[in-house]
Amino acid sequence: MSEFQAGAEVLQVKGLTGGYSPRRPVLHELDFTVRAGEMMGLIGLNGAGKSTTVKHLLGLMAPHRGEVKIGGTTLEADPERYRGSYAYVPEAPVLFEELTVEEHLRLTAMAYGLDEKRYAERRDRLLEEFRMGPKRGARAAHLSKGMKQKVMLMNALLAQPALYIIDEPFLGLDPLGIRSLLDRLTEERAKGAAILMSTHILSTVETYCDRFMLLHGGRIREMGTMDEVRMSRGAEGDTLEEIFYRVVEESDADGRGA
């Protein structure tokens, strides 16, 4: 359960400029927040800067300028609180080959300081929800790609942090897995979690996300609810897909594209 009041800013990004080299920034002056009880979609073409943004949020890359706060603190000020406030699901599953499904869950429970009772409850529920009960003793090396992705999601959900950072969660998932994930994310949101989800599946963003942010060329081109974006782009009844293409084309036309 999130410790934040609904509407409180769990993730705050101010003036974030970053990239691999200070001479060639990939991200330019990003300003956004994700609030408790809110699901934010992060969309953009390949190379738009989505993964770089995520890496900066995780603290894997240092910003050239600007600040990232999670749970009210920066990574430098309180690393343990910062990292304890989010769970991360990477685009490609990163598991320990020598651990079983259940051992991964136990490891996460230890890292996030769950007690035995809460761990057992959440583990059993997740194993059932993601239909991974029969695979609980299987080592990561013997799982299919989709199952590995399920294990990543289960680990994130087990921690129940204030913020979920999820990168392309639907790759390799079967239809039931996608449904379970979306249901669970909706449930976590209702409980007060903040969710930042990077994905290419625009219809899901349109249906499930409260707000979205369109990155192109390392800049935020659009941000807001569907209605707000429709208003600003002046096209009532447009789908997100139509808006997406229009924004990308306009950005390219005025020379600010990727």
Binding site: L58, G59, L60, P79, E80, R81, Y82, R83, G84, S85, A87, Y88, P90, V94, A111, Y112, G113
Partner: peptide, 8 residues
């Protein structure tokens, strides 16, 4: 990556 992600 977990070395950087875990709150430890």
């Amino acid at each position: 990556v977990w070395r950087h992600v875990y709150p430890l």
